[in-house]
Computed example of a mutant assay.
Amino acid sequence: MRRLWFLALLTVLLVIPQPAQAETASWDQPGPFSVVTEALDAGHTVFRPADLGGGRHPVIVWGNGTGAIPAVYAPLLRHLASHGFVVAAANTPNSGTGQDMLAGARTLVAENSRPGSKYYGRIDTAHVGATGHSQGGGGAIAAGADPLVTTTVPIEPGPLGSVPALHGPVFFLGGQFDTIVLPGLLVIPRYYAASHVPAVYGELAGATHFTPAGDGGGFRGAITAWFSYWLKRDAQARGVFFGPGCTLCADPAWSKVLRNTKALEV
Rank of each mutant, 00 (worst) to 15 (best):
D28E: 11
H57G: 06
V72H: 02
I69V: 15
V86I: 15
A68N: 12
V72C: 02
A74L: 05
S26R: 15
G63C: 04
H83M: 03
F33K: 14
A39V: 05
L52W: 09
A25S: 15
T45R: 04
N94Y: 12
V46Y: 00
A71Q: 15
P32E: 13
A90V: 03
S34Q: 14
G65K: 01
V86E: 09
P30Q: 12
S82K: 07
P30I: 15
T97W: 01
S95I: 00
H79L: 15
P49Q: 08
P70R: 00
P75Y: 13
R78G: 13
G43F: 06
G67P: 01
P93R: 05
I60E: 00
I69D: 11
I60R: 01
I60L: 07
G31A: 13
L52S: 06
F85S: 03
N94R: 11
V46P: 04
F85W: 08
R56A: 15
A42Q: 10
I69Y: 14
T66Y: 02
H57F: 07
L77M: 12
P93Q: 10
V36P: 03
V86F: 06
V59W: 00
T37M: 11
A88G: 06
S82D: 04
G54E: 04
L77W: 11
G31P: 13
V36C: 10
G67T: 04
W62Q: 01
T92P: 00
T97H: 01
A68Y: 06
H79V: 10
F33N: 12
G55S: 08
W27S: 06
T97F: 04
G53N: 08
E23S: 15
S95N: 03
A39D: 12
P58Y: 07
L76H: 13
P75D: 06
H44V: 02
A74C: 10
L40V: 01
E23W: 12
L77I: 09
R48S: 06
G84C: 08
T66K: 08
S82R: 09
D51M: 01
A42K: 10
D28G: 13
S95L: 02
G67V: 03
V86K: 13
S34A: 15
V36K: 14
G54C: 10
A25W: 14
T24E: 14
A22E: 11
A88W: 00
A89Q: 03
N64Q: 05
S95P: 04
N64L: 02
I69Q: 13
S95M: 05
V72E: 11
A89W: 11
A88C: 06
W27T: 02
L80N: 02
A89C: 06
G65N: 02
G84D: 11
N64W: 05
T37G: 04
T92V: 02
G54Q: 11
T45G: 02
H57K: 11
S82V: 08
G67R: 02
A39F: 05
P93Y: 03
P30K: 14
L80D: 04
V86A: 09
G55V: 11
Q29D: 14
H79T: 11
A81S: 08
V35L: 08
P30M: 10
S34P: 14
T97S: 13
Q29V: 12
H83C: 02
P32D: 09
T37F: 07
T66Q: 05
L76R: 09
A81I: 03
